[in-house]
Each structure stands twice: as C-alpha cells, then as structure tokens.
C-alpha cells in the first residue's frame, strides 16, 4: 500500500511538471505571486476613515489607525487604535497573525486599563458595526485558503486573474470568495465577491484609487463594501500611508498596545 502511495505521489509530481497545472495549482500560484509581489514593505502605518451607510442612507463615521509589522516566517503583527466615535477612543487591538492555526489577539480597554486576550475565532462578526467582518480586514496569508483558478479577463487593458478562494477555517463566515487579481499591477486585488455559508452571494468589495508606494507596493485609497442581502454599505478610506516607518517588533507588544491608546 505504502509503495503504491509513493508511486502515486511521484506520478502526480510528474504530471504537474510535465503537463498543464490543475485549476487548484494555478489558483494557489496566483495567490503566492500576489504575496511575493508585496513582500518587503517592512512596516506600514495608515489612517483609516470608515463611513457606514444603512439602507435608508443614514451615515455614521469611525476613525482609526493601523500599524503593521511584516514577518515572513509567520504572519504579520498589527495594531489597530480607535480614535472615533469618542466613547471608544483609545480602545486598541494587537494581533499576531499565524499562517496556520488561529491568530493571537489582545484587546485594550482604556477606561479600566485592562489588556484582555480575546478569542480570534469569532472572525465572521461585523467590525465596528460595519459591513466588513473581522476576517475581511485581517492579514491575507496564502495558507488561509484553498484555491481554484477560474479565468483570465481584461480590465482597462490589464490582464486580471479570477480565482476562487475557499477558507480553510470552518469558523469563516464564507463558503467562498471570488478574487480578481490584476496581473499587470503586481497582482493587486481589484474586486472580491463573498458568498455566505449557504453559497448565496453576500457582499462585493471593490478597490479604487490605487497608488504605488516605494515603486512596488500597490495600495488602494478606498475599499467599498456592499452587502447585497441587507442593502447596507461601508466605505473605507486610507490616508497618509507610510512604509518602512522605523517601527520595530518592540512596537507590537502588550506594553506598546497600552501606550498606543494614548
């Protein structure tokens, strides 16, 4: 039996290199290329403004700041500090993303000065009442999905690869995502469609106002998320992007989480 298995593995390896890739391999390949294309930003800081809009068009705003420290052997470390609404000002989260397994996450509550380790398993819930789920905003590690390549299309003269992504984590709120990678612009994402656990289309996220930083890293100025099932929308604006900021790993521990609250 063991010999048979080994033979099978060898055979499939030969098939892989000899013939065309399977859609699964091709999809994974795109995701790996996208990750590689963005490697080397070292660290980044960005200010975010979120506009939440309900079906009636009523709006509410949130302001926050995100700091990221790039790691390649494991997932990135990041910190989010809430500045507005004022009643949650100073609330902050520290996340250590892991390529495999659940992330480590701590929450700082400034009114009682408490740092609390929180469960990262509740990833499908809404982030600050918005149409973004926590998992939509966490660091996109290749290992978090299984892939299937669909097709190549053309968008404003650029070649775009469309890839289905199946979340590995059963706690994900999605059955699949359909991601549009722009091959001619460093595999940046142009659009992602989200399908709920029943397979129904749930949300569409479109990226716009792309700028290239350090001649390499593409970052959108705006994320626009529409929930097709509720009619609600969230706009997320990114301002004052800075890279290679001089931040070190010392800026991503529980002491710095408390300090970041200011």
């Amino acid at each position: 039996m063991k010999v048979l298995t080994i033979t099978f593995v060898l055979l499939s390896a030969v098939v892989t290199f000899g013939a065309a890739q399977t859609p699964e391999e091709k999809g994974l390949n795109v995701a790996v290329k996208a990750t590689k294309a963005d490697e080397g930003f070292v660290s980044s800081v960005v200010d975010l403004k979120m506009i939440l809009r309900n079906r009636q068009g009523q709006e509410s705003e949130r302001f926050l700041q995100n700091k990221t420290y790039e790691l390649t052997e494991d997932g990135d470390k990041s910190m989010v500090v809430f500045n507005s609404p004022k009643d949650v000002k100073g609330t902050a989260t520290l996340t250590y993303t892991h390529k495999i397994g659940s992330d480590d996450q701590w929450l700082y509550l400034p009114s009682i000065k408490r740092v609390k380790r929180i469960s990262s398993s509740n990833k499908s819930g809404p982030f600050m009442g918005s149409e973004f789920a926590y998992e939509d905003l966490s660091s996109d590690e290749v290992e978090k999905y299984k892939y299937k390549y669909l097709q190549e299309i053309s968008l404003n003269g650029d070649k775009v690869d469309i890839v289905e992504q199946y979340p590995v984590d059963p706690k994900s709120g999605y059955k699949k995502r359909i991601a549009h990678y722009n091959k001619d612009k460093g595999y940046r994402l142009e659009k992602v469609e989200f399908f709920d656990r029943k397979g129904e289309k749930l949300k569409t996220l479109t990226y716009s106002g792309y700028k290239q930083y350090l001649d390499k890293h593409w970052r959108a100025d705006k994320f626009f998320m529409v929930n097709h099932q509720t009619g609600k929308e969230t706009e997320l604006f990114f301002n004052n992007y800075t890279f290679k900021t001089g931040l070190s790993e010392d800026d991503f521990n529980q002491n710095s989480l408390i300090r970041a609250s200011r």
């Binding site: 398993s121 499908s124 709920d196």
Partner: peptide, 12 residues
C-alpha cells in the same frame, strides 16, 4: 464562552 455572530445577526 462566546457564541459569535449568532445566526449571522452580528450578535455575540
């Protein structure tokens, strides 16, 4: 123990 996003209502 937290039941997160119960029945996709967003409620924990």
């Amino acid at each position: 123990y937290t039941f997160g996003n119960v029945k996709n209502t967003g409620i924990d």
